[in-house]
Design a protein around this nucleic acid. Structure first.
Lengths: 211, 211
DNA sequence: TATATATTGGATTGAAGAGTCCAGAAATAA
DNA sequence: TTATTTCTGGACTCTTCAATCCAATATATA
């Protein structure tokens, strides 16, 4: 199903250029935001004429959408690597938390969040897609893990979703707020591990089966 | 110091108009965001000519700043009403939490947050001012309350700031995220009380002096 | 080679909207 | 009244960019 197409008549579209365009667009949008970037700039950065940009994407908005979708897909991919080796629940949670926080507090994702926030108003559905593809998916995953642990008697809760919400909230704390509104350097490994440990500690105090 | 000025020569500036301008600007900005509103519209809504707008504010950006400052001041005011009657710590926390959540999850503040997020990039310092005047101030207040309770032996913690962060995080949970990215109706009284109670429950389990 | 499509750079169009100009009307102190 | 300042409405200037048009050139198939 990959290369069954017979080449059409004339000069073929240069797919490398298409890739260069979206890559440059992504870089510039992430650096300065949608409005602040001119289509011309993207073309130059991609080493391509402006018309070629428009030959690949009908307008600036479509290009932006494409970038956002690509970024969403990347995010999903990252979740794939989040494999949970079945062990003791607290260790599972620690591992999960470390991956989780490192990912969510990475400059890339923080910036993604900012851009979505800034353009949400002009792009209906963008916020929803981000939420469901990102935070919500992680929330569900964690809730499943917790429900399983409850089933095995390692944890005690009749509302795994709320438990998961508690844990996530404890992990994140006010860090997203701090980083979104102030311009802070990314969180250190140290600090992340500290947050993860503390979150799990509070969580276990509440939800550990040995009431 | 209020009305000591001798009236200058000609027709005096109509302060009601100035007020009408900023009020209309606020309403429109909150409804549709900075970019989407034309200065002309603000003038019409305020029942004033466009030139009068420019007579009061040098440009659109200044008008926007003025609106943001006014809104910040309102927010501060709201905190003033947050009086803590000294009683048992858990009751104090319940009362604090109720006021806190009702306020932070109100449509007005949620929208304020959105607008700040959207315009932060183009308005340096806006994010910081919002954070320090809003979330950060509340955080400090709560930390003080907790520290006092620790002093009286009602709670046990050697890091009141972190404890406050935990409690705030538990109260808010993922609600801000859910409401920011999806368009959800404001949270009901019921739901708010439920969140407050649950947050305090988890918090007390961790930090209650009777370990 | 003939035909078809892509790419290029450069010029051009078109729309939107911020901010200005101006001449007359309105409000106020002297 | 008169001088002085504000307000009004509307036309006007200026800038910025997205998006289009075009003639020349490049790359492919048949």
């Amino acid at each position: 199903m990959t290369t069954t197409e017979r080449r059409p008549r004339g000069r073929p579209k240069d797919m490398d250029k298409r890739a260069a365009i979206i890559a440059s667009a992504r870089a510039l949008f992430f650096e300065r935001g949608l409005e602040a970037v001119r289509v011309e700039e993207i073309a130059v950065a991609a080493g391509v004429s402006k018309m070629t940009v428009y030959a690949n994407y009908p307008d600036k908005a479509s290009l932006f959408e494409a970038v956002m979708n690509q970024q969403g897909a990347r995010m999903q991919d990252a979740f794939g690597h989040l494999q949970l080796n079945p062990g003791k629940i607290d260790e599972t949670l620690l591992q999960f938390g470390r991956t989780f926080l490192t990912f969510l507090l990475s400059p890339e994702i923080m910036r993604f969040d900012e851009i979505v926030s800034a353009e949400m108003g002009r792009h209906p559905g963008l916020g929803q897609r981000f939420y469901h593809g990102g935070p919500n998916r992680l929330w569900n995953t964690l809730a499943t893990v917790i429900a399983a642990a409850d089933g095995k008697g390692e944890l005690k809760t009749d509302d795994p979703e709320r438990a998961a919400e508690d844990l996530i909230s404890l992990w994140l704390g006010l860090a997203p707020l701090r980083h979104r509104f102030n311009e802070l350097p990314p969180m250190s490994e140290q600090e992340i591990m500290d947050r993860v440990l503390h979150g799990v500690a509070v969580f276990m105090k509440m939800y550990c089966a040995g009431d």
